Simulated scan of single mutants.
Amino acid sequence: MSEFEISVFGASDIEANLAELGQLLHACVHAGASIGFVLPYSLADAESFWTDKVLPGVGEETRIMLVARQDGRIAGTVQLGYDTMPNQMHRVDINKLMVHPDFRRQGIANRLMVEIEAHARRLGRRLMTLDTRTGDSAEPLYTSLGYVTAGVIPAYARDPFGSDRLDATTVMYKLL
């Protein structure tokens, strides 16, 4: 595999790459990623997420979206939400870190996180927050990057495979 490159996606980039972004999200959900969706989950559902939930924030410049490409394909993405209340202008939220199952275990998630932190610093933000399914493979990644567990909330989200099981979430933060 060749080296991957990371770039900022604007609104027109999302529109131009909608089908591939939909495929990325669809593949991640079908691989069991706990990123807010449960099966059954269609490609149309995945594309709607990008147009309905991500595109407005990117267009309004209240959300930054980074995309990692490898061999011409979208391999992963992460978002930085900074549409905060006036008393929270010092913080940002990390949203929807995902790496396509075909590209995992190559350091893409790590690089995306390092890059998104650099954007938070440029915005003058000093606190980053996120949540992840407790015990998920992303939890050790966040810990290795300096994120600290604030707490665990039991029964926070449904299992992505559509069962009635409710998974806990670990809320984490990092001071920059």
Rank of each mutant, 00 (worst) to 15 (best):
P140W: 07
V54N: 12
G32K: 01
G57H: 06
V38Y: 08
L97Y: 02
I108N: 06
A150L: 12
F49E: 10
R73T: 11
R91N: 05
R125T: 00
R73W: 12
H90P: 00
H26G: 08
A138Y: 02
L18N: 10
I116Y: 02
A138K: 01
L55Q: 11
A138Q: 06
T143I: 07
S2N: 14
D102K: 12
P40I: 11
D93Q: 10
G36A: 05
T170Q: 10
A118Q: 14
D93T: 07
E117A: 15
F161W: 05
A168S: 15
I35E: 00
A33T: 01
D102P: 08
Q70L: 11
A150K: 01
A19W: 05
T134P: 01
F4T: 06
Q70I: 15
V171R: 08
P101Y: 07
A168Y: 07
L112C: 09
C28A: 15
V92N: 02
L39W: 10
G59S: 14
A155E: 13
Q106A: 14
N87V: 02
I74L: 10
V54A: 13
P101N: 11
F37A: 05
M1V: 11
S137P: 03
R126L: 03
E117W: 06
I14K: 10
I35R: 00
P101Q: 12
D45R: 10
E5Q: 14
D52G: 09
D45L: 10
D131K: 04
L24A: 01
E20D: 08
T169G: 12
D167E: 14
V152M: 08
I94M: 07
E20V: 07
A120I: 00
L145M: 11
E61D: 15
G151H: 09
I108W: 04
E47D: 09
K96M: 09
P86I: 13
V29F: 06
L39I: 12
K53F: 09
A16E: 15
L112A: 11
I74F: 05
A120F: 00
T132V: 14
G81E: 10
L166K: 14
L39F: 10
R121W: 03
D13Q: 13
G162F: 03
R158M: 11
F4I: 06
D45H: 13
G135C: 07
L43V: 12
T134H: 12
C28E: 02
Q88K: 13
A157Q: 12
D167A: 08
G151S: 11
D164F: 06
H100P: 02
L66K: 08
P101E: 09
E15P: 08
S137C: 03
V38W: 04
L175H: 02
R133F: 00
M172T: 00
G146D: 06
V99C: 03
D83Q: 14
T143F: 05
R73H: 15
D159T: 07
M85R: 14
R122Q: 14
Y147C: 04
V114L: 15
L24Y: 04
G10N: 15
G76N: 07
